[in-house]
Design a protein around this nucleic acid. Structure first.
Length: 144
RNA sequence: CCAGUCGGCUGGACGGCCGCUGUCGUAAGACAGAGGAAAGUCCGGGCUCCAUGGAGAUACGGUGCCGGAUAACGUCCGGCGGGGGUGACCUCAGGGAAAGCGCCACAGAGAUAGAACCGCCUUGGCCUCGGCCACGGUAAGGGUGAAAAGGUGCGGUAAGAGCGCACCGGACCUCCAGCAAUGGAGGUCGCAUGGCAAGCCCCACCGGGAGCAAAACCGAAUAGGGGUGACGAGAUGCAAGCAAUUGCAUCGGGCCUGUCUUCCAGGCUGUCACCCGGGUUGGUUGCUAGAGGCGAUUGGUAACAAUCGUCCCAGAGGAAUGGCCGUCACGUGCAGGUGCAAGCCUGCGCCAUACAGAACCCGGCUUACAGGCCGACUGGCAUU
RNA sequence: UGGGGGAUAGUUCAACGGUAGAACUACCGACUCUGACUCGGUCAAUCUUGGUUCGAAUCCAGGUCCCCCAG
């Protein structure tokens, strides 16, 4: 994922500038994040890991997982959009000192029923907690 | 007014703040941005690539009353026939059972060249004189079954029987109406010849394969690929040579693919040298102007077609089309008021809207769907 | 995207179109001082909606769910 993908990086950088944060797309990235630290809430589970590559300057990246068990496509779309909006609320202004971390949010059905203010608040608190935990043990033994 | 049948439409509206995708623009910004089913993927096409050759056969799959519409269809329209409903209307895979094979359990005497179990009757015999036996006749009655050899009635008879007659139902022939399915009329025959083909099958018609992850272009490393040339290699014959072997000529063989067969076509069946070239990941195209929408006119019973005018109406790609708030409409729950009641008004609440999210594009089918609106028609009641 | 298969007792499987059966499980009883083993008995089912047929688990359509294969 170097050199040749320059055009693609440009595209994703443009996307990152507009969405404040980067995205996870590859299956291997999701699997790597699943081996990291986890926290569980009623509406979602949060998985996170610190990227070990020092030259990587892309900052925080997020991935969303909404499995087919949670509902039909309308409900899954709605969950994804609510979570994305909640992330956008939380990440506003915190772009500058962003650690090189990958986060994966695994959604549950409760994302549909709880209020949007609650969802945003809970997500912010959980992100702060998992950042503390990652700072406590910065290196993850498993290589990516 | 009540009950019902059929068809069509709609499927929240307006505004504010913060975002996402595309197009245009130097920029600011402007404009556009899910559905009737986008769903299931059940059919039919377009499009792209491959095979596209000649002949034939056998499979396989599908469709199945008749006529029409259509690019095509298993779709739609009209008609016919069977069944249901008082009716509007609904429903039907609705060709062929004397081409053949197969099956029809249990029950029953008997289940498809197959009939006498009980019963009824004539004659004869026996005797205890109202019973038994024998030879026959008989499908009216009983019983079994989903189905028992046309049905009902009258006559007839020893008892019966299409044995005779009437009506109904069949079969065949002729005529008439209709493009046809089919319907009607007349005549002849007293009329043995089930059911199942959504069992095998027969008949008629249709069907090349794969799918946008198709396909094209750009394109890094590595492995592999193609072309040309040289050499080598199977069988047979000839020549040279004691022989190993060598040279020349001719003929091919094996495997795979094209559904099968016969031809036929293509590929593979060694090494080296030179040249060409570039799987997958990634990017771009394909990608939305189309059997397009809307309106009018004309033709047609209709499905639909033709002509004219007008409009441009999503293009994402781990997948945009959103989040929050306010007002209103509608719905619903609770409480209160009014009213005989239906209902109406006020306040508060609802994740405040059913089913559900484009993935190349169209025509259908099927399935899901809160609430609302419109039209046509039928039956009943009341009034005039 | 294309193709194939399946759904039967609580579980695993059978069943020519003609009374849905077996094993394990559960329950009851017998045997035993008690339990296990063994023996006997009982309960329990055709995914769903229609159609063909005298009759459907079986045949044919529509739906729901699950599994497998190829790319």
């Amino acid at each position: 994922m170097t050199g040749q993908i320059g055009g693609s990086v440009g595209a994703s950088a443009r996307k990152a500038s507009s969405t404040i944060f980067g995205r996870l797309k590859q299956r291997s990235e999701f699997l790597a994040a699943a081996k990291g630290t986890r926290l569980h809430e009623a509406a979602f589970s949060l998985q996170a890991r610190t990227r070990t590559d020092e030259t990587d300057t892309r900052g925080r990246r997020f991935g969303l997982t909404v499995t087919k068990k949670t509902g039909n496509s309308v409900e899954r779309n709605r969950i994804r959009r609510r979570l994305r909006e909640a992330l956008r609320e939380n990440m506003r202004g915190s772009l500058i000192e962003s650690p090189a971390c990958d986060y994966v949010i695994v959604a549950r059905r409760e994302c549909l029923s709880i209020g949007f203010a609650d969802l945003t608040q809970t997500l912010g608190k959980t992100l702060a907690r998992i950042d503390q935990r990652l700072a406590r043990k910065p290196k993850i033994p498993t290589a990516d």
